[in-house]
């Protein structure tokens, strides 16, 4: 039974079935399946899609479909993990979002999905995220990495603002900052004092590993 539910959960993610994944997650909790095992299984599934994306076998609609199914099921499983007072070993924790004034979701979601697939614990704080909201996220989740996206030239300076705010709050040395998005270049990333930049989503995963020395 346990094996069957976990396999079906994996399958639901590979079928981009959000409702199915959520209901299977609830079933897993009811059946008292080890939530860590369930989360691991989902990570295996999303990694499969992420790897396929890297190889050009899967495309953006697949990646986003799988990510949606994953995020439908994850909160249910995480709630159970918290209730049991256990925790799951992850590669590292990332808070990610698109900066204030910018509502571009796709690039950020790609990076979040691939990071999850690689074994990071990712907290996606969404789009149009103010500096204050980023700081709240950093305080709440205590991440190893803060990742920010900006597609528009006009919104890129917002990344500088977030970094400045981190400094003011005395949090800058607590977290590595990586930036990306269409408007960003290595020169810009250097100029605002970010720890890393990469133009591609798979590159961002490598960068994240490098930043935390894994």
């Amino acid at each position: 039974m346990t094996v069957e539910i976990i396999e079906n959960l994996k399958r639901a993610i590979l079928a981009y079935d959000s409702e199915g994944a959520a209901s299977l997650a609830r079933k897993a909790v009811q059946e008292k399946i080890d939530p860590i095992k369930a989360l691991d299984a989902m990570t295996v599934a999303i990694r499969q899609v992420g790897d396929g994306f890297g190889k050009g076998e899967f495309f953006l609609p697949d990646l986003v479909g799988a990510a949606d199914a994953m995020s439908a099921a994850t909160p249910i499983i995480e709630e159970e993990i918290k209730r049991l007072g256990t925790s799951r070993e992850s590669l590292g924790t990332v808070v990610i979002g698109t900066v204030y004034g910018d509502i571009h979701t796709i690039g950020k979601t790609m990076v979040a999905t691939l990071l999850t697939a690689d074994g990071f614990q990712v907290y996606d704080v969404g789009i149009n995220v103010t500096a204050e909201k980023f700081i709240q996220g950093v305080k709440k989740y205590k991440p190893d990495i803060l990742a920010m996206s900006a597609l528009l030239t006009m919104t890129a300076p917002e990344q500088r603002k977030v970094i400045e705010t981190l400094k003011k709050e005395g949090l800058r040395d607590k977290v590595k900052v990586m930036v990306g998005g269409g408007a960003i270049t290595q020169e810009f990333a250097d100029s605002i004092g970010a720890d890393g930049y990469d133009p591609t989503a798979p590159g961002a995963v490598k960068l994240a590993r490098m930043l935390i020395g894994r």
Partner: peptide, 16 residues
């Protein structure tokens, strides 16, 4: 309208 989008839809996966 926003925040809706089409990228996560079966329709997109099938038709693109």
């Amino acid at each position: 309208p926003i925040p809706g989008h089409f990228l996560n839809k079966e329709h997109t996966r099938k038709w693109w």
